[in-house]
């Protein structure tokens, strides 16, 4: 056994320990979202979906069962559960496709508000765990299996939609970054900050569709050192997996018109010297 493999093993050790520790962690008594006591019984309130353990341990059954999982996907491009006009109107996207974990309804809106606006960062791992089924589904469709390491091999890097420095200062954290870093440590993916946000646009929620699309022009800038790191990673594995493109997953919290994802993917593909495949993973599809 050579030194590098030992080092690699040591590097993997903490995260795999952390993964096992989830099993040992105390079940919480109250639901993370509704703050009501959890009654544990064996009746699973899930719609045939195998849910991550973390969710089952920290959420009460009523909350678990209200999650509007997006399991039935009708638009293969944007991952919507309904027939989609946006994707017909704009057939040329810079990203391959988007997959979202849940439908963005009133409950999901309130959950996201607790995390994003109230600043309850304890919810980050839970929202991250909610991304798992969609992420695994997406990886499987790309040829991965559920075997250990197979999902990691399927991707070259994971990245996230950045926030402007003003917003980061105001909020204290970037929700997309926290979600991405959860997935990165869960699946042993390299997390790269490939983008930065140049300009502070107003809150997206107050804008119309066309305003959003115009707003998004040229506000993301690729981070060159991270891009070269990505190229390096791709260079080292391209032959083994016989891929023609570097494959990255871009994480964000909400997908509405797709203009944010489009702007990010456009900037990424333009600034990378290796051919890129950008997949988008969002927590909610509105």
């Amino acid at each position: 056994m050579n030194i590098t493999s030992i080092l690699a093993w040591l590097r993997r050790l903490p995260s795999s320990l952390a993964e096992q520790a989830v099993w040992l962690s105390a079940r919480s008594d109250i639901c993370a979202f509704c703050r009501k006591p959890i009654q544990f019984d064996n009746s699973e309130a899930t719609s045939g979906l195998k849910l991550p353990l973390q969710l089952r341990q920290q959420l009460c059954n009523p909350c678990l069962s209200t999650i509007p999982w997006l399991t039935r996907i009708l638009c293969p491009r944007c991952g919507r559960g309904i027939h989609c006009d946006d994707c017909i109107r704009q057939p040329n996207r810079s990203f391959i496709c988007n997959r979202s974990a849940v439908q963005y309804d009133q409950t999901m809106r309130s959950w996201l508000a607790l995390y994003k606006y109230r600043g309850n960062e304890e919810l980050a791992p839970l929202l991250g765990a909610m991304l798992q089924p969609a992420f695994e589904e997406l990886s499987l469709s790309l040829g991965a299996t559920m075997k250990r390491g197979s999902i990691a091999a399927c991707w070259d890097a994971i990245t996230y939609v950045p926030v402007s420095s003003a917003r980061a200062e105001e909020r204290g954290f970037n929700q997309a970054e926290q979600l991405a870093s959860y997935l990165a440590s869960r699946y042993h993916l390299p997390l790269l900050p490939l983008l930065s946000r140049e300009r502070h646009t107003g809150k997206q929620s107050f804008k119309s569709r066309s305003e959003r699309i115009n707003d998004m022009k040229k506000i993301f800038r690729a981070d060159l050192s991270s891009i070269s790191k990505l190229e390096q990673i791709y260079g080292s594995v391209a032959d083994t997996f016989s891929r023609t493109h570097a494959r990255i997953i871009l994480v964000d919290d909400i997908y509405t018109t797709g203009s944010t994802a489009e702007a990010c993917a456009e900037e990424l593909t333009a600034s990378s010297s290796v051919p890129l495949e950008v997949f988008v993973l969002t927590w909610a599809r509105s």
């Binding site: 109230r118 600043g119 309850n120 960062e121 304890e122 420095s165 980061a168 200062e169 105001e170 909020r171 204290g172 954290f173 970037n174």
Partner: peptide
């Protein structure tokens, strides 16, 4: 709860007890 904080640039703690009244 200690988290990395972008507004002060280091790890910084918030109070989870009164978070419903603003962080």
């Amino acid at each position: 709860r200690r988290t990395a904080c972008a507004s002060c640039g280091r790890e910084c703690a918030y109070c989870s007890s009164c978070i419903q009244m603003g962080r």
